[in-house]
Amino acid sequence: MTTAADRTKRAHPMLEVDDISHRYGAHQALDRVGFSLEQGGFHALLGPNGAGKSTLIALITGLLRCRSGEIRVAGRSLSRRACEARRQLGVVFQQPTLDLDLSVRQNLLYHAALHGLGRRVAQERSDRELARQHLEARADDKVRRLNGGHRRRLEIARALLHDPTLLILDEASVGLDTASRQALNDHVRALCRERGMTVLWTTHLLDEIAPEDPVVVLCSGRVIADSRAQALCTHTGTHSLQDAFSRLTTRPVVTEDPP
């Protein structure tokens, strides 16, 4: 459990990505990527397809080994304190990872067991998260019978079971209709407000981002912008985020080297 007291005690940013590079053979997927997320709030990681978002997420979640640079989650290095760092992470992957033949509750209990939670705690937390996602009535249904929006909400419920401090959603809205997409986005924002969660939301869809959101823009494996969405418009002299984004990602940008 994270209490208000130890939240203030922790001076670290929630996520620090420090000079990460990654290549697949000859293809440089990430090139000296660095940014950090402050505690609390909805952060967006934006980039066109193929920008390196998924690779970055795989590195942050420890599915890929970080060969160059370092990532710290709540101050814990992924290379040296991997278990503690993973303990802080809740992840919703782009591809669905639910077991379709198990019931909603069985999926949650399996995840809880993987995190070493006992049966009783697991039951309580499953009930709590299902209630929060308004899925209580579906608890005993097979996941196969859930629609796309409900499956996504179940994945969020699962990602929150072990009380992580950082929730990562990798293109979580892909494949949903407009209404479900909006509902999901609202829901995650509510999590930030009400539970003080830190959320990293990756997307290539600009309408999911609000003007006051902190945004990291990734393009061809490099960070080309790191500021509030609003400031991107001011900086590029455009009126909409859409224009700012296309200006940033289509033109060669003069990037200032970090001091």
Binding site: R86, R87, L114
Partner: peptide, 18 residues
Amino acid sequence: EMGSMKVLLMSPLSRPFL
């Protein structure tokens, strides 16, 4: 392939143990 290995690997417990 189906991604449920990812769920296993997101466990904070040691991977050889998993």
